[in-house]
Computed example of a mutant assay.
Amino acid sequence: MVLHDVKGAHELAGKLAEIFHFLLRNRHFNETVQHAAYRRDVLPWPDTASKLVSLLHSKANTQASGSLDDLGETWQSLHENYEHFERIETIEDLASALWLIADPEKKRPKAKRSVLDEMWTALTHAKGFGGKTAALFVKSIVDIHTLDVNKDLSFLHDFTISSEDFLMVPVDRVILHIFTEIGLGSPSFTKINGVIREYGLQSSRWPTLWDDLWFWGFITQRMAKIAPTAGEKEVSTMVRRTELNEPKFWSILGTPAHLWPQVREAAEEFRTIVTSPALLPA
């Protein structure tokens, strides 16, 4: 993806760099939140296959309006191919197994690709899944097997990924709003991931870093009612605003409650970064 507006590209690069370094400094807050969620998804289940099924269901259920009929076909296919999931030991095994529950009309690409991209592509072809939910699943697998906080949750063997691998960011309305605020025109899942990839703002130590945008965006966004102006129909509209929203922090199961003063300070910094003019890179 190439941004042709040079001034706009420089401003966006500056803003993304600010956000990237903010996320690096504050990684530990969302790690705590995510670890609690992964424990709920993984620990109750006794073997690799059941852990994977739990994670797939968990991510599919994040959709606001998923199709139960489509997902039903995927869950049925998963049941029919369960023996393959029982034999999974490595990330390569997992990528191959995910193609078994993909829509049979979708063909596996012939071109060689990274195992993470293979996993994401396969799952986007499973009925009821989309780019965001597929990205959430891949992200959860990587987090569980690469972050020290999740050592007690890992279940795949010999888990390694290349520092060159790019993980798709699970873009939702919260993240779309952030990119709108920082000046990316018509943001979308594809466009946002393209911009992040283009600027090379990645961390080999924390490959899922950009997903932290959801946490910071979630607690710094609020829906507000806008009254109609004179002459308009008397219908109020709801708009999303960037401002601290403390109740959302307390609503998260597993939230680091004892760290709220530090989180509040960091959230105010994040809000300022998102809403202020960009610092242009040298």
Rank of each mutant, 00 (worst) to 15 (best):
E92K: 06
I219R: 10
S65T: 11
D212K: 08
L123Q: 01
T275H: 00
I101Q: 11
R25C: 03
L259P: 14
A282Q: 12
G72V: 10
H145L: 04
E73A: 07
V6M: 11
V42E: 11
T146K: 14
W210P: 02
K191G: 01
D47E: 13
L259C: 09
A37C: 12
A134G: 07
K191C: 02
F29L: 14
E268M: 09
K127Q: 14
R222W: 05
D103Q: 09
A60Q: 03
G200S: 11
I226D: 08
G130C: 06
D5I: 00
F189C: 04
Q262Y: 12
H157V: 11
I252V: 12
E232T: 03
I219Y: 07
H125I: 02
D69R: 12
M238S: 13
N81T: 10
A126K: 02
P170Q: 05
E265F: 08
H28S: 14
P109H: 13
I273N: 02
S65E: 00
S163H: 09
F189Q: 02
L100G: 09
L68W: 03
D5V: 03
D117R: 09
L176M: 09
I226M: 05
D148N: 13
L52V: 10
S114G: 15
K191S: 03
V174K: 11
I161Q: 04
Y38A: 10
P228G: 10
T62W: 08
R222E: 09
K225T: 09
T255E: 08
V235I: 07
L71V: 05
R173V: 15
D158I: 07
N150D: 15
W214L: 09
G14R: 14
L78I: 06
E232I: 01
T133L: 01
I175L: 01
D211K: 02
R87C: 12
Q262I: 01
F270L: 08
D93C: 06
S114L: 13
G128T: 05
K139G: 08
K151H: 13
P281A: 00
D143S: 09
W250T: 01
D165C: 04
L280V: 12
T275V: 03
Q221M: 10
A135Y: 02
H157F: 06
K15L: 01
P281Q: 00
T229V: 05
R108M: 12
L280R: 13
K59C: 11
H57D: 06
W260F: 05
N26D: 14
A267S: 12
E89R: 15
A64Y: 11
D5L: 05
E232S: 13
R87K: 14
E234K: 14
L78E: 14
Y38M: 04
L52G: 02
A49Q: 15
L147Y: 10
S162V: 00
I219V: 09
F249C: 10
T190D: 07
N81F: 02
S162L: 01
L167N: 03
I226A: 01
A111Y: 01
L16K: 11
L24K: 15
D148R: 11
I88L: 05
W206M: 02
L56H: 07
A17M: 08
A230Y: 00
Q202W: 05
Y82N: 07
A135W: 02
D148K: 15
A227G: 07
M1E: 12
G200V: 08
H79D: 14
F166P: 06
W210I: 00
G130I: 03
T208P: 00
F159C: 05
T90N: 12
I219C: 02
L55M: 15
F270Q: 07
H157T: 13
S203A: 07
T180S: 04
